[in-house]
């Protein structure tokens, strides 16, 4: 399945006979990357699963209109990121809580989550990341865990490279402070 490039997959998708097959290949190619990207933002597996499904449904509906101004890969990431951010906003308004409180809830969830098996230091790092502002958290995750280039991140998040570098720098400093305080 991975022998197909993004362009080949798009060409295949535009052929009505191979549409479902091509989409299935796209899902298989990107599901894991997008899942981990979403999971690190929303933490809980069930939420990540819902958001991933919604992401691919949107991709299915919008792929016809995809004009290849950007790469398929960055377009998918942009949808996944927007879906995750929308989800966080919905959670905040649903429980009438400021986002800080929701993130505190997530920290507690991490401890009891059956789908988190990290050791003490990994748990501490995740808690430190959850203490970051929403956008800084996304930038840190993309750079640190997914080792994405700043240029790609800039395209996905519609921000300048300089702003992303500054965000990452601030994020690392805050995490360092969290580690030193505890």
């Amino acid at each position: 399945m991975s022998e197909y490039s993004d362009n080949e997959l798009l060409t295949l998708f535009r052929d009505s006979e191979n549409r479902n097959y091509a989409f299935n290949l796209i899902v298989r190619k990107y599901q894991q990357k997008l899942y981990w990207h979403i999971r690190k933002i929303v933490i809980k597996h069930d939420d990540a699963d819902d958001i991933l499904q919604n992401t691919f449904i949107k991709v299915w509906k919008g792929l016809d209109g995809f004009r290849e101004d950007s790469k398929l890969y960055t377009w998918l990431y942009r949808i996944a990121t927007n879906e995750s951010l929308t989800f966080l906003k919905q959670q905040k308004t649903k429980y009438l809580l400021p986002l800080v409180d929701y993130e505190n809830q997530l920290k507690e969830t991490l401890v009891s989550d059956q789908n988190f098996n990290g050791d003490e230091i990994q748990l501490k790092l995740q808690k430190a990341i959850l203490g970051l502002p929403e956008k800084q958290r996304i930038v840190f995750n993309m750079k640190y865990f997914e080792e994405m280039k700043y240029e790609e991140m800039a395209e996905i998040l519609s921000t300048s490279v300089g702003a992303l570098k500054a965000s990452y720098h601030h994020a690392v400093k805050k995490i360092e402070k969290y580690f030193n305080e505890d």
Binding site: N20, F23, N24, V27, R28, Q31, Q32, Y35, W36, R39, K40, H45, D49, L52, Q53, F56, I57, W60, N115, F116, N117, G118, D119, Q122, L123, Q126
Partner: peptide, 20 residues
């Protein structure tokens, strides 16, 4: 440290196809 339920990624494409 993060894990997913068994066979999650194997069954996910089918789940999406069903939703579509």
């Amino acid at each position: 440290p993060f894990t997913v339920p068994d066979e999650y990624f194997d069954t996910f494409p089918t789940k999406i196809q069903e939703r579509i």
